[in-house]
């Protein structure tokens, strides 16, 4: 069952034997029914399929909710956006994930290897070295400061402030570029004069703030 958006800052997930839910720690606001919570680590699919080891520096330990009932999720009054995936892949920073159906497959892109460009992207988005890919059929609840809006990408490139980038779905290429004068556009202490250029076919989600959270 897809997540219900209770209001702009809270979602409700229905947990059942067939549909456990994974969330970030500290996101559970309350629940009814008989729901059991336990900590999990790593990536994979389903609660049992989660790999037990934690990557050094991984910033995202999760919590599994299993049983029968409904759970309310929210985090620090941040806005929550629900994205329902129908087979496509959502890419976003791991610490923006509030909760998702455990049936979705998650994997982490480690940017330790890869070129200078990728390493810089990780640093600029404040994530450190990890982005998460979520794939399959199910709901994902994502955190954004002030809410997020969707920009369809259709051939024309879209420029995005790296701090305002929430995530994207579809077949998109997200490249980090430096540009003269860009510091004025995204400046204010970020130090970098970088922008993200998004090309391809899909949707990019941007938050209404240039501060991460």
């Amino acid at each position: 069952m897809p997540f219900e958006q209770v209001n702009s800052k809270v979602v409700r997930a229905h947990v059942s034997q067939a549909t456990p839910v994974l969330s970030r720690r500290g996101a559970m606001l309350g629940y009814d029914g008989r729901v059991v919570f336990r900590p999990v680590h790593g990536q994979g699919q389903g609660v049992g399929g989660m790999m037990g080891r934690a990557f050094a520096g991984e910033s995202n330990p999760m919590m599994a909710a299993e049983g029968q009932g409904s759970v309310l999720y929210g985090y620090r009054g941040l806005h929550v956006v629900v994205i329902d995936l129908k087979g496509e892949t959502l890419t976003c920073e791991a610490d923006r994930l509030l909760a998702h159906d455990a049936s979705l497959t998650t994997s982490v892109e480690m940017i330790a290897q890869g070129g200078i460009r990728q390493a810089v992207r990780g640093a600029v988005t404040g994530q450190g070295l990890f982005t998460t890919k979520v794939n399959g059929m199910g709901s994902v609840a994502v955190l954004a400061h002030g809410g997020a809006f969707a920009i369809p990408v259709n051939g024309q490139p879209v420029g995005v402030d790296p701090q305002a980038y929430v995530g994207h779905t579809g077949n998109l290429n997200v490249d980090l570029q430096a540009k003269v004068g860009w510091r004025d556009a995204v400046g204010r202490g970020s130090g970098e004069a970088m922008q993200l250029i998004v090309t391809g076919q899909g949707t990019v989600y941007v938050q209404a703030s240039e501060e991460k959270f």
Binding site: G26, L29, G30, G74, R76
Partner: peptide, 24 residues
């Protein structure tokens, strides 16, 4: 208190409970 899931306030009976997105 690692993350918050280990302790909750338990309500039974009749009435209404008011909640909000947890805040810093």
């Amino acid at each position: 208190r690692a993350s918050g899931e280990e302790k909750q306030y338990d309500f039974t009976g009749q009435g209404t409970i008011l909640l909000q997105s947890s805040e810093a």
